[in-house]
Simulated assay, not measured.
Amino acid sequence: MSHPAAPTSLEKLNKFSFERVLNEDPLTHSLTLLGAFPGPAADRVQAIVRIEKTALDPDRGGSFFGDNGLVKRVTLEESTDIYTWLFGWLPEERERDVKINVICPATEVHVHKYTKQELVMVRETPELYERIVKPYISAFPSARTQWVENILLGHSEQSKVLFSSPEFLILPDMKWDLTTTSSLYLVALVQDRSVRSIRDLRRTHIPLLSAIRREAERIVKEKWGLGKGTLRMYIHYQPSYYQFHVHIVNANQAGMMSMAVGQAHLLDDIISLLEIEPDEGPGIFERMTLTYGLGDQHGLFKAMHTASA
Rank of each mutant, 00 (worst) to 15 (best):
S194V: 05
R232D: 08
A254H: 13
R193K: 13
G281I: 12
Y185A: 08
G299N: 08
T291P: 00
W224R: 11
V220Q: 06
L266V: 15
G283E: 07
E222W: 00
N252P: 00
E286T: 13
Q238V: 13
D279Q: 02
M256N: 13
M233N: 07
F285N: 11
G283V: 02
H247Q: 15
A264Y: 06
T181L: 06
M233E: 10
V249P: 01
D296W: 01
R287G: 12
G262A: 10
G283S: 06
S210G: 08
D192K: 05
R213P: 00
D279M: 01
R193S: 15
H236C: 05
G293Q: 09
A264F: 07
L201R: 00
A251D: 10
T306I: 10
Y292K: 00
G293C: 01
M304I: 14
M259K: 01
E280W: 01
G293E: 11
Q238D: 08
L231G: 06
R193Q: 15
L300R: 11
R218D: 08
L300C: 13
Q253S: 14
L266H: 14
I248K: 00
F244T: 06
F244R: 00
R214C: 12
R287E: 15
Y241C: 04
T291F: 00
R287W: 07
I284N: 01
V190T: 10
L208E: 08
Y234G: 03
S272Y: 03
G281A: 08
